[in-house]
Amino acid sequence: MSEEVTITIDDQSIKTQRGEKLLWVALENNIFIPHLCAIKDESRPNASCRLCFVEIEGQDKPVTACSKEVENAMVVKTRSPHIDRLVKTGFELILSDHNLKCRECPANRDCALQMIAKKRGLKLKCDRFKPLEREYELDDSPAEFAFDRSRCVLCGQCVWADRVEAEIGAIGFTGRGINRVVTTFKDLPLADSICTECKLCVDACPVGALYYKHNQKA
């Protein structure tokens, strides 16, 4: 069924397979597109972080690259005033609900948010929006790792690792709206849940929300 197609991303001509998702085609060709929630093996993308906006010739509004299937002769731009504006706002919204004490964070210098900021020239500060300043729960019950929700960006990478890769199902999303959170059944501490502490979720976390205690700073 696979059919070779040629697309253009930022003036670069790329050969790929029809039906592939644009985000992964770009990333595999070393073209950076900001993203947090995208999972390559997931057939129906989450499309929830709303950072991977691109523009496609012939379409008037930016679309998310993670959910867009490539078609032959597609012409894609990863930067434009409209894209940059949406990415900036989306990024700042995430930061407004994120612990910005990077120096205390185990993921400092190895963080998807820092990477996006660097690549797109965005500040790791919350200027336009007031930080939400909520009470975030810390779960350090597992022996080797901990979960600090003040750094969680709700990307869902840990949930995928837990459910699909580890096949455990200890964690998932609960709560609606602003109260959406990753947690265990009945909100038990991880150590009291069915979690096997396989740590695949820790490896999947793109920020410092799930981290190894031996990496903890301060």
Binding site: T89, G90, L93, I94, F129, G177, R180
Partner: peptide, 21 residues
């Protein structure tokens, strides 16, 4: 709408919250 937002995506979850604030 902020109350009824499901919270899945960034713009609706956090954007409507900041607009309301």
């Amino acid at each position: 709408t902020q109350h009824e937002s499901c919270g899945k995506c960034t713009f609706c979850r956090l954007g409507t919250k900041h607009m309301l604030d």
